[in-house]
Write a protein that binds this DNA or RNA. Sequence first.
DNA 1: GAACGAATGTTCGTATTTGTTCGTTTTTGA
DNA 2: TCAAAAACGAACAAATACGAACATTCGTTC
Lengths: 252, 252
Amino acid sequence: MVSNFRQQEILELARKEGKVTVDGLAEIYDVTVQTIRRDLSELAETGRLERVHGGAVIPSGVVNIVYNERRRLNEDGKRAIAAACAASIPDGASVFMNIGTTTEAVARELLDHENLLVVTNNLNIANTLAANHSCEIILTGGVLRRADGGLVGGLTAEMVKQFKFDFSVLGCSAIDEDGDLLDFDGQEILVSRSAIQRSRNIMVVADHHKFQRKAPLTICSLADVTVLFTDGALPDKLVGDCQKWGTDIVNV
Amino acid sequence: MVSNFRQQEILELARKEGKVTVDGLAEIYDVTVQTIRRDLSELAETGRLERVHGGAVIPSGVVNIVYNERRRLNEDGKRAIAAACAASIPDGASVFMNIGTTTEAVARELLDHENLLVVTNNLNIANTLAANHSCEIILTGGVLRRADGGLVGGLTAEMVKQFKFDFSVLGCSAIDEDGDLLDFDGQEILVSRSAIQRSRNIMVVADHHKFQRKAPLTICSLADVTVLFTDGALPDKLVGDCQKWGTDIVNV
DNA sequence: GAACGAATGTTCGTATTTGTTCGTTTTTGA
DNA sequence: TCAAAAACGAACAAATACGAACATTCGTTC
């Protein structure tokens, strides 16, 4: 589904060479760089190429473009949240981590921890933490979802139930004003709930955007959570509720 | 997600050479060392490289050095075997693939196939085939073994039993003169056997070195196999046996 | 042949990347 | 252990690439 003959050829060229340049293509086809940019933008939008400064390369890896963009959203905030969360996980702990860009940030901050046991349904986290040699990594089985590197399917929740964790590090799609953790994905909710059941400490990582979003399904309430790590002010009412519930809030 | 051409190539170079130097790269790309430092910093930040004074090395990641060397052993032979094997797998097939450098080579040859369903306990295969967008990938759960990117543990075999495959693509540690497929790892044997039970066609990929090696545990006999793909002459006796058993031999 | 739409070219303000400089940190070798 | 050399990263300026908006060209349709 390319909108012109150039795009088809650009794709072939990129596959053969591994990359294409804006200037090079402009010369080949004798058009302006702007036209080539339009072609590359379209190809990148549909995920066929990955745009880089000066040209484009073949897309690599598990995860699609949208997710990568989401990963960049409030990157610094997520890193700060992740650092705080990682700091409160001691060496030797057993940890569950679910799907999400913020939990992935936590994984990166855990690279220097020692003797962790990490169970996850997130392929990206497994790939990241593989660099930490003292960390035992257990992947749940499931269908690989390219959208976010998640492993989904009925068996995942069952597998999680076999463990007992010191910590669950959970991300979610949204948190509403009542303090309910929300998500879009029904199966992922089952996984998160199983993890909550089997964990001594529930850590939720959520940047301030999550308080402005909505999602249809409830994972649990902040009342069930041990600590919430975030990077923005919560509504006053929620702060009060958390105090009542005994839910700690760490605001980085 | 790389932000420029260099980074992509730096990664490839690092994977090939095991390391890259700041000065060397600056010379190759005819840019200042500062620019290279920025590239390496970015790659290190996302965990793709590990920064060292004067350059960078590949992170001690999913797969250890020994395995990488094994992967290079008879690389061309394995690719030829893999190409033949992939050629006899039709689009739309359901396939199981186990741990092993040769099965990984098959995965690379399957990148252009369409609508495959691939079940595997090999993280490397999942990462490779993720680039094939029309391929559904199912990972078995299990403990990540860094030695070879395998997912091992009691649950893997159970999970495999839930499927029915058109093809199993199996590697093994050795094949002895009686035609028995051998392996070092007890759990992996259980996985392979489960796959064999549940597959309409068993394809074994094994380069000629496998006929000179020994391993303690038996997976099954070549009599149970549909096709053997290899790149060297088999002992005459074994050729005769295979004819008797109805096991095809494809010698590339 | 006039009206239209798609593709491309042109212009311009913005964003990103790169080179340069300089003070600090790490490595090396005595 | 100490000093020189090398490598490093931060900060700033220059060069380059970028995308949006608008103009132009060319083929179609009425």
